[in-house]
Design a protein around this nucleic acid. Sequence first.
DNA 1: ACCTGAACACCGTTCAAGT
DNA 2: ACCTGAACACCGTTCAAGT
Lengths: 198, 198
Amino acid sequence: MTVENRRARSPRGSGDDLRDALVTATAKLLETHDLNALSVRTVTSATGVSPTALYLHFTDLPELLRAVKARFFGDLRDQLTAVGGTGRDRVKALALAYLAYAREYEGRYAVMFHAHRRTDAPSTPAAELVELGWAAFEPLIAAVGAVLPDASVDEIRETSLELWLALHGRAQLSVAMPWFELPDEGRYVDRLVRQVLG
Amino acid sequence: MTVENRRARSPRGSGDDLRDALVTATAKLLETHDLNALSVRTVTSATGVSPTALYLHFTDLPELLRAVKARFFGDLRDQLTAVGGTGRDRVKALALAYLAYAREYEGRYAVMFHAHRRTDAPSTPAAELVELGWAAFEPLIAAVGAVLPDASVDEIRETSLELWLALHGRAQLSVAMPWFELPDEGRYVDRLVRQVLG
DNA sequence: ACCTGAACACCGTTCAAGT
DNA sequence: ACCTGAACACCGTTCAAGT
């Protein structure tokens, strides 16, 4: 992974500028590079600082990646809240927007649902991520609630989750196994919404 | 990642013994360790050979991981073909067996559907993996076909895929975000099968 | 035929130091 | 207050050599 030579960054005014710059640079690199092509050195080099500068704002590389994940979940939520429509059409539009996000930003989606951890760490839930995940999920819950006015909160949540898990299954598979041919997104969403919403 | 000191392996009789030993050792390490805790050195050390011995049987580390993935898909297929039952009960039993595999072997599932690649490599489909993926999928297709005797091959495939994508969505999410609380597996499968199979 | 050892350019992270 | 440089124990991979 060769990174263009940038001029060394002048000492900065203050605050979280470098932190933001590192997150932005990492997000950009993920558009064109694999997750494990990311290193402290490529990220800092792309930002124009020394490798050790990363540790001024993050405890380690995984924490930087968590911050990047958080940004991606925020972006996804923004895309979904911008979706229009009402009733069942709105549910379908949200489903299509979700699949579109995964398709357009494959690298992001791979990182957002990347299965790391495993025994070593105490599986730190990273409260911020939990919250952002739920926040991104909310528009779908609201849209499903509008379609099922007589359903309880639990029923709405369960139904929304079924929709989301089917969307995630398709999105994640297409990222993990791009060679696996899947039916048209529109058709998939039509059938899914009919099956789950009745 | 500390690995117990093993005696150096004596020169072997012949053939693919070392290859198998490396795949087995890697599979075992994945039961307790994260994917990126795997290295050429931990794998070969666990096998009792020098780091460079890996290159006698694999072009590089990713190819070893592909071989491990292939073994896991074979295992999954074995588990699914061992499932009994007929009709709709068989479909449900297969779904539960699928989720059970992902739950019991989280590390395996994470590797099987790990989204690597991305621009650098030409996204080598790895024909062997494609075939093994389909082979693991076949039992479900057959079970769905038995439930829908009047359906066309395409309809059966599409319906089976919908079932599988919903199962994969749940399985992969539980591996990627274990802190996300999901409804009971039995209830999920009951509702899913009713929704998709009508 | 099968495996090892030394060597290469990397890697994440720490810590003392610079401005 | 903010950032760098040298150093540490690692990493994947190559290649010449050992038995």
